[in-house]
Amino acid sequence: MTFVGPSWRVCRAATVLLTGVLAVVAAGDPETPLMDTVRNVDKARVDYMLNCQGCHLPEGRGIPGVVPVMKDYVGNFLRVRGGREFLVQVPGSANAALDDAALADLLNWVLVTMSPEQLPAGWVPYTGTEVSKLRAVPLREVTRRRAALVEQM
């Protein structure tokens, strides 16, 4: 895996945030790539705790076979057709008690902090407008759709 352009910078910022070292710099510097992608890092992190972490576990570790693993994996969904929509439409995202902008922020935070290496070069962060359109269309066959996407990866 090679890191070029924006995704490398995002990756570096995410690592910094996760380890806690110099995070204050990331949070305080509006020029950092993470902040370009995630408008409110503190809120996104707490939103992750309150809406996702209970099942997906800290850092998106998941439990294979029980709860989908996001760490070092979830970015792959942006590499396959339909994966971008899936990440919004899966009930845990679509039904979260978050407004569209906050959900977009949370998804971007998950992608850049948990799975930066899998993100395709030049990926475009989610916006509230996009999330709003996608989450209005619920998925009917979550398990099957996910399996089909994973097969493409």
């Binding site: 705790m49 309150l50 972490q53 209970g54 576990l57 439990i63 029980v66 709860v67």
Partner: peptide, 21 residues
């Protein structure tokens, strides 16, 4: 259990809400 639910509680001493697992 690694899997759980997570909420918030208000600490009466500092008046802040904390995230509780």
């Amino acid at each position: 259990s690694p899997i759980t639910w997570i909420g918030t509680c208000r600490n009466p001493v500092d008046g802040k809400s904390y995230v509780i697992s």
